[in-house]
Design a protein around this nucleic acid. Structure first.
Length: 270
DNA sequence: ATGGTAGGTAGCCTA
């Protein structure tokens, strides 16, 4: 089974590109972030014409996540328990930043982690709390094949940005954010792409970052140990940052050997 | 130090 995660930065603007990429890339399940539309605005027809069923979670023009799959999805949930909300004005609102589905016995989350905006901004405290609560839940998920897939808005290492000096005093590279990312690794989760594919996953539209090769690695697939055991390959499709009207993020793709998990007693044949 | 681009929207806000 081939799964992927992609911050598409508006599914309505890019539906043609996305579906074309899905078919060309032989992807079974795609976790999308920043669909930037309500569920009633989602372009389901174009996905379904290509053989993909879509479960979406979007409430307005911001954020929004979805999962497209050509294999059956079960146990779809939107939001995680106790997901913190953000108080833009007035009462905190739980935003459309998380959903999950199970495909072929593998639990897959599509996550759009809050940006954080600036050091000291309330949005950064929101980001850290959001990750803290998610990690608390994830502790209880370690016994099953499960992956947290999405835009974490964190660069875990200095070499995950083009020039760490340019990020002095910025979010995405701060120690509290990196600590929040490492918390998932401490409970047993593994970045299953890190050792299999190099490079950035995001290049800002501004200042010609793509043309200058100035990107960031902020999109990840974190797997439980039972998930990580199934992974056979991974790649970052940086070519998707080029061409006509690209997203500022590119797809991260992971191949998993589901049969190994589903049939434990299968004789080993080499 | 600033501004650079893009999307959704008609709130310039968010990234």
């Amino acid at each position: 089974m081939r799964v992927a995660t992609w911050n598409v930065n508006s599914v309505r603007t890019r539906v043609g590109r996305i579906v074309d990429w899905l078919e060309r890339s032989d992807v079974d399940v795609l976790a999308m972030q920043e669909i930037k539309c309500r569920v009633d605005q989602f372009p389901y027809e174009q996905f379904e014409a290509a053989g993909y069923h879509v479960e979406a979670h979007g409430t307005n023009q911001w954020n929004g996540v979805a999962i497209a799959s050509r294999l059956p999805m079960v146990d779809v949930v939107r939001q995680f328990d106790d997901q913190p909300g953000y108080a833009n004005t007035g009462e905190p609102v739980v935003e459309a930043r998380a959903m999950a589905a199970t495909v072929e016995g593998v639990r897959l989350w599509s996550l759009y982690v809050p940006n954080g905006r600036d050091l000291g901004h309330p949005h950064l405290a929101y980001k850290l709390e959001w990750l803290r609560i998610l990690a608390e839940h994830a502790k209880g998920w370690q016994g099953q094949p499960l992956a947290l897939m999405g835009d974490f808005n964190i660069a875990p290492f200095d070499h995950d940005v083009w020039d760490i000096a340019a990020f002095e005093g910025s979010t995405h590279v701060s120690e509290p954010e990196r600590e929040a990312f490492r918390a998932f690794e401490r409970i047993g989760m593994v970045d299953v792409v890190r050792d299999r594919a190099q490079g950035y996953t995001y290049w800002d539209y501004k200042a010609g970052r793509w043309q200058k090769g100035e990107g960031m690695r902020i999109d990840f697939v974190l797997g439980t140990a039972p998930f990580a055991e199934l992974v056979t390959a991974a790649r970052i499709d940086s070519g998707e940052r080029a061409g006509d009207a690209p997203s500022d993020h590119v797809p991260v793709v992971v191949d998993i050997d589901v049969e190994t998990e589903l049939d434990d007693d299968r004789p080993m044949i080499f």
